[in-house]
Amino acid sequence: MNKKKKSNKSGYPDEAIKTLARCFYPSMVEFFNSEEGQREYEEWLKEQEVLQALPVAA
Rank of each mutant, 00 (worst) to 15 (best):
M1C: 08
M1A: 12
M1P: 02
N2K: 13
N2A: 14
K3F: 10
K3D: 09
K3L: 13
K4W: 09
K4I: 10
K5Y: 08
K5S: 07
K6I: 11
K6L: 09
S7K: 06
N8E: 04
N8T: 03
K9G: 12
K9D: 11
S10P: 00
S10W: 01
G11S: 01
Y12D: 08
Y12H: 13
Y12L: 13
Y12V: 13
P13D: 15
P13V: 12
P13A: 15
D14S: 01
E15M: 05
E15W: 08
E15Y: 07
E15I: 14
A16W: 10
A16V: 14
I17L: 03
I17T: 01
K18W: 12
K18A: 15
K18C: 14
T19S: 14
T19K: 15
T19N: 15
T19H: 11
L20H: 09
L20T: 02
A21Y: 04
A21Q: 13
A21N: 03
R22D: 14
R22P: 01
C23E: 12
F24Y: 13
F24R: 13
F24L: 14
F24V: 13
Y25E: 15
S27P: 02
S27F: 14
S27L: 10
S27Q: 12
S27W: 11
M28N: 12
M28T: 10
M28Q: 12
V29R: 02
V29K: 02
V29D: 03
E30Y: 05
F31Y: 14
F31I: 05
F32C: 04
F32V: 10
N33G: 08
N33S: 14
N33P: 01
N33C: 04
S34D: 02
S34N: 05
S34M: 01
E36C: 05
E36H: 02
E36D: 11
E36L: 06
G37C: 00
G37N: 00
G37A: 02
Q38H: 06
R39A: 07
E40L: 05
E40P: 00
E40H: 03
E40Q: 03
Y41Q: 04
Y41T: 06
E42V: 08
W44Y: 08
L45W: 04
L45H: 06
L45I: 09
K46C: 03
K46E: 05
K46I: 01
K46D: 09
E47Q: 06
Q48I: 10
E49A: 09
E49N: 04
E49K: 04
V50H: 05
V50A: 04
V50F: 04
V50C: 03
L51H: 05
L51V: 06
L51T: 05
L51F: 07
A53I: 03
A53H: 08
A53W: 02
L54V: 04
L54R: 07
P55N: 06
P55R: 05
P55D: 07
P55W: 03
P55S: 10
V56I: 11
V56Q: 07
V56A: 07
V56T: 11
V56F: 08
V56D: 09
A57R: 08
A57N: 10
A57F: 10
A58Y: 10
A58W: 02
